[in-house]
Structures are given as C-alpha cells and as structure tokens.
C-alpha cells in the first residue's frame, strides 16, 4: 500500500468520523440537552428521553438532513466535474431555486402531485432554460456564461418566488418564506424515507453512469475514441445531477451553497481524484454541512428555529468569495 492510498483512507476515515460527530452533536443539542449516554440507552432500550429524541424529536430531522445534504453534495460534484469549474453548482446556477419555485407554485395551486415530482420538473425546467440561454450565437457554450446565465435564472426565480409568496395568506406566506430559505424544521420519517428512497434510485443510476464521467474527464476526443457518445453521456449525467438536487430540495427547500461547498471540501479532505470518489466524498461532506447548518440554525438563538439556509448563506457566501479570489489568482476565470 503506498502513501497516497494511505492518505486517502485516512481522509475517508476523517470524513466519516466528522459525519458521525455532527450527527451525535445534532441529536444531543437542542431545547432540551441530552447526554451521549441518554442517547445510547435510548438507542439500545427504546425507552427514556433518548429514545423519544431519536424517534420523534430530532431523529427524523437529522436523517432528512443527511439525505438532503448528500443528494445536494453529489449533485454539486457532478456539475463541477462535468463543467470543470468549481463554481458550477446547481445552487449557483439556479436549478435549486427553480425546483423550489415549482413546489411553491404547486402548493399555491393546491395540487396533489408529490413534492419530488414537482421539484424535479422545476429543476429540469430551470436547467434546460439555463443551457439553452447560455448557448452563444456561434453555437459554443462557455462555462462562465453558463454560470452567469444561471445566476440570472436564480434572480428571476427568486423574484417569482416572492411574487408567489405574496399571493399566499399571511401564515402560509411566512411558512413559505422560511421554506424557500431552506429549512429542516419539523421533518418527519416520511420526508426521510422520501429523500433516501429517491436518493438510492439515483445513486444506482449514478454508479452506472460514473464510468462515462471518468471517460469524459479524459477529454472528448479520447472518450469518443473509447466508444463513448460524449454529448449523450453529458446530458444523462446532467439529468441525474439535476434530479439529485431536486430530491434534496423536495425535503429541505432550496438550501443555498451546500452543493457548491461540498465537492471541494470533500475532495480536499479525502484527496479523491477519480469522479466516483469525488462524488462520494462530496455526498458525505454535503451531509455534514447540512446537519451542522441545521444544528446551528436551531441552537444559535435559544428558543428559536431559524431556517438552515440562513446559516449556509452566512458561511457559504464567504466560501464562494474565497474560491473566486483563488480561481482568479490561478487565472481560471
């Protein structure tokens, strides 16, 4: 075993440990503080405050956060690899806010369609719009134009969202506003099952597609030479990426910046270079960020549940700034 693999294993262990710590902390801290021992007895015996916390109070929320964060993180990594630009995340390019808009519109119209379906439709529509609008006159597509046009679509959906929110009755409007910021308050096992169900299906599809992503990494000519239909593969991968993001949005709202942060963070810790490893580490990193953001959002102001999206906004935006200055120094954008 060489030093590189050792470092990779150590990184993966660090990432896994961080996720475990984030989960335990998130279960312990809240309006009522629990000790790790309480949780442990609750888990083993199914009785006492620990069991209640796990089963009803915090368990479902934490599990939902893990699922949503992993889906968003994986989605971010797919686009970052596909477009070879760390800024190319579904939340920067407006896909997640498109998914959010579709859900809010669905709620306003009183539809009975399931949330993930609405969210997927919204996300795909936003992604298609961005892709079409970013094509230049000569038919070429520059990643940076894609990102800027995506930002524009994000602005537009944000405006459309606040338009829709004004049409809701006051109590519902406040609730919708929180949801649109990205919130994990009051999630139940239904949400957790939904995000893990959809997420598993998409993960299986992704496992099949990941070979194509590795080939695309080699460059179009080589990939085509090795028998890959590159444009089709790219579309399929983008489709999976959008659906993963939409899965996260359906349960947690369009939480900003998780997809952007997760990929580079995971890659830095594990040192993964292959697309498969990068996506996996991004999923774990996304889960960590989401669990911690939710924890911070509900414990920073005692007795008050802030939307988790406020926290990722406060910490994610500086990260975007830092990324930008680094990229700029490297001359990438």
């Amino acid at each position: 075993m060489n030093a590189k693999t050792m470092a990779g294993i150590r990184g993966s262990l660090i990432l896994a440990a961080a996720l475990l710590i984030a989960i335990v902390l998130s279960l312990m801290i809240g309006q009522i503080r629990l000790s790790a021992a309480d949780l442990w007895t609750g888990l083993l015996t199914g009785k006492g405050p620990g069991a209640l916390t796990l089963r009803v109070l915090r368990g479902p929320g934490v599990v939902t956060a893990i699922g949503a964060g992993a889906a968003l993180g994986a989605s971010g990594a797919i686009f970052q690899i596909l477009l070879r630009n760390p800024l190319a995340a579904p939340d920067v390019m407006g896909f997640t806010s498109g998914a959010g808009l579709a859900i809010v519109c669905g709620v306003l119209a009183g539809t009975s369609l399931p949330m993930p379906l609405l969210s997927a439709a919204g996300g795909l529509a936003a992604a298609c719009l961005v892709a079409i609008l970013a094509i230049k006159r000569d038919g070429s597509q520059v990643p940076i134009t894609l990102i800027l046009v995506g930002l524009g679509i994000g602005f537009l959906t944000a405006a459309a969202n606040s338009f829709v929110v004004t049409r809701l009755p006051p109590e519902q409007a406040a609730e919708a506003q929180r949801w649109l910021t990205g919130s994990l308050a009051a999630r139940d096992w239904g949400h957790a099952g939904q995000v893990f169900g959809c997420g598993t299906v998409l993960a299986v599809i992704l496992v099949i597609q990941v070979r194509a992503l590795s080939l695309l990494e080699l460059g179009d000519d080589l990939a085509t030479g090795l028998g890959l239909k590159s444009n089709r593969a790219r579309l399929q991968l983008a489709g999976t990426g959008v659906l993963l993001a939409a899965t996260g949005v359906a349960v947690a709202g369009p939480v900003p910046f998780i997809a952007l942060m997760a990929g580079p963070l995971g890659m830095r810790i594990t040192g993964a270079k292959q697309p498969g490893g990068r996506i996996l580490s991004a999923a774990v990193a996304g889960a960590i960020i989401t669990v911690l953001a939710d924890l911070a959002a509900r414990s920073i102001v005692p007795g008050l549940q802030l939307p988790a999206g406020v926290m990722t906004g406060i910490f994610g935006a500086p990260y975007l700034l830092w990324l930008l200055s680094r990229e700029m120094d490297a001359g990438d954008i």
Binding site: L148, P318, L320, L321, L324, M328
Partner: peptide
C-alpha cells in the same frame, strides 16, 4: 469576478 463577488457578499449580508 466582480459580479460573483457581489452576489456572494449580497447573499451573506442578506442572510
């Protein structure tokens, strides 16, 4: 770069 810096700053402050 200026636009993205502005978007990030604005997102943080409005959060």
């Amino acid at each position: 770069r200026l636009t993205l810096a502005g978007v990030a700053l604005s997102a943080m402050l409005l959060s």
